[in-house]
Amino acid sequence: MDNVGIVVEDLDAAVAFFTELGMELEGRMPIEGPWAEKCVGIEGMRSEIAMMRIPDAPGRLELAMYHAPKAIVPEPAVYPPNTVGLHRVMFAVDDLQGTLERLRPHGAELVGEVTRFEDSYLLCYLRGPSGIIVALAEQLS
């Protein structure tokens, strides 16, 4: 897998959120023109992407903000975790509580609670920018 793409309403906020989570901005650029329109199937599209990477590991997130046409925000704007489609992105963290505290100023809100899975993990779901569900897992043993 090369990357997972996520459409966001505020690219700066999403980059700040995922940077605080420990990802690095690999690059940022506008995407537009006939080749892009043909690829995504949207005539007249203009967007900007930010490619985020995990340091010293494979896997990237492509964050995209559409300038034209504007992104469609479905109703309801925030779906529950059991909605069909991309479910969530999970990150392994060393300190779940500390990570939550760092992400809260960036708009992170718990979906449920921090829970313990046996003696193996602390787990939680949280909402980030544009309602994205992010899961955190801290390995205990």
Rank of each mutant, 00 (worst) to 15 (best):
E26C: 10
K38W: 12
E43S: 14
D10V: 01
E32H: 11
E20G: 05
K38R: 15
D10Q: 04
F17Y: 05
F17Q: 03
M51E: 04
P55E: 03
L61P: 00
E43M: 14
S47V: 07
W35P: 07
M52C: 08
C39V: 15
R28I: 05
A13H: 05
V40S: 10
E62T: 09
R53D: 02
G33W: 10
E20F: 06
M52N: 00
M51G: 03
G59H: 02
D12A: 11
V15T: 05
V4I: 15
E20M: 10
M29V: 11
V4Q: 07
R60I: 01
M45S: 10
P34D: 13
V7I: 14
V7D: 06
M51C: 08
L61D: 01
M51S: 06
D12P: 01
P30C: 10
D2A: 11
F18D: 04
D12M: 02
E9Y: 04
A16S: 09
F18Y: 13
V8N: 02
G5T: 15
D56K: 10
P34Y: 05
I42N: 04
R28Q: 13
I54Y: 07
E48R: 06
P34C: 06
A16W: 01
I54M: 13
G5R: 09
D56N: 13
V15I: 13
P58M: 10
D12H: 07
E24T: 11
E26F: 13
L21G: 01
K38F: 12
L11I: 05
A36P: 03
G59Y: 01
C39D: 15
S47Q: 05
M29H: 13
G27T: 04
G59P: 07
D56L: 09
G27N: 08
P58E: 13
D10K: 03
N3R: 12
G5A: 15
R46V: 13
G59D: 07
N3T: 13
E20T: 14
V40F: 12
L25S: 06
K38C: 10
I54Q: 04
E9F: 05
M29W: 13
G22R: 02
A57C: 12
R60N: 08
E20A: 15
V8H: 00
A36W: 09
E20N: 05
E20R: 12
S47A: 15
I31G: 11
I6H: 03
L61G: 00
D12L: 05
G44L: 10
D56C: 09
E9G: 15
I49D: 06
P34S: 14
K38I: 05
C39P: 02
E9I: 05
I6W: 01
M51D: 02
G33F: 07
I49F: 04
E62C: 08
R46C: 12
D12I: 03
E26I: 06
P30L: 04
P55D: 03
I54T: 11
C39H: 15
I31V: 15
G22P: 02
G27V: 02
I54K: 06
R28H: 06
L11S: 02
G59R: 00
V7H: 08
V7L: 12
R46G: 09
E24N: 09
R53Q: 11
M51P: 03
L25T: 04
A14E: 01
A57Q: 11
